[in-house]
Amino acid sequence: MEFRRSRAIVPVLDVLEEAGSTNDVLVSRAAGLPDLAVVLTDNQTGGRGRLGRVWVSPPGKAIAVSVLIKPSGLPVESFGWFPLIAGLAMSRALSPLVPGAVEVKWPNDVLIDGSKVCGILTELLPDLSGLVIGSGVNLTLSADELPTETSTSLLVAGATDIDVDAVLAAYLRHLITLYREFETAGGDPVTSAVRDEVAEACHTIGRSVRVLLPSGDDLLGTAVGIDEDGRLLVETDAGITAVAAGDVTHLRY
């Protein structure tokens, strides 16, 4: 594909026939590339998810996209908002394509009717001058090709016309809009309204959750909000805990 719509939005768009990890490719090239440079492939052979998970799909049926972010004047502490910003952007891009509800699961998944269609992994550049946002979207996988019982694809979710360039262009437009608003506000999630917008789209808030913390401990409670650092607020009998990192499971009672 020529990706004409997407190429009109960003300064660099490199389409690879195959890549081990588009994040790795972009990190290695970052020094010579501008803000919002993009690398993508529909055949990623060594993709990674959070917590060391592997992300692999049949060639031609999913897309891996990495976007280089080189923000001007933003503190590194604000970079933790970018997985949430990217998830919100992707949810807005996919929502018009399917009949089901498209929502964000804290901190980095996009769901359709509760099933995962997209995962996001952000990685800091070694010199901390920016970061790379990697997104993997399941496009045309059939039900028997999905990696888990809680996964879905645009095809399985009912999308009838899957135009990869249109999906990518919509994602990039929404991502750039949110990024620029956040950047203009100096990385303030409240002034930029990013926190409120993410919270509104976040499927996790209001649900009973189990959070596997980096320490190995389980936190059981109700997700009640997102704080100014992008942390998930979980209410238990002991009070409210702010979770910066963890593997979240939505519980069904």
Rank of each mutant, 00 (worst) to 15 (best):
G186W: 09
E183H: 07
G187H: 07
S66C: 07
A86Y: 02
V194K: 02
A31F: 13
G130N: 11
G119D: 04
S66I: 08
G73E: 13
V234W: 00
E103Y: 03
L88R: 02
Q44C: 04
T204S: 07
G216K: 08
L94R: 00
T249K: 08
L111E: 07
S208K: 09
E183N: 08
L131C: 07
R50P: 08
S115Q: 15
G230C: 03
V104K: 00
R29Q: 14
N43W: 15
E228M: 11
D161F: 14
T152Y: 10
L154W: 01
G216I: 06
V190S: 08
T41G: 11
E103W: 03
V243A: 02
L26V: 03
I63P: 02
D218S: 14
P214C: 12
P59V: 06
D165K: 10
A244Q: 09
T148V: 10
T184P: 12
D35M: 12
I176Y: 15
V117Y: 03
L219G: 09
E235W: 14
D237T: 15
V12W: 02
V54G: 11
R53V: 11
G239H: 11
G187C: 10
V198C: 07
E200S: 08
F79I: 11
G206T: 01
V56F: 13
P107S: 05
L111G: 05
S135W: 06
T236R: 05
R7C: 08
L40M: 04
I205Q: 00
V25Y: 11
G46T: 06
I162V: 14
T150P: 03
D161R: 14
K105G: 00
A31P: 01
L36H: 10
V56I: 11
R50S: 09
T45H: 14
G46M: 07
D24G: 06
I205F: 00
F82C: 01
V67M: 02
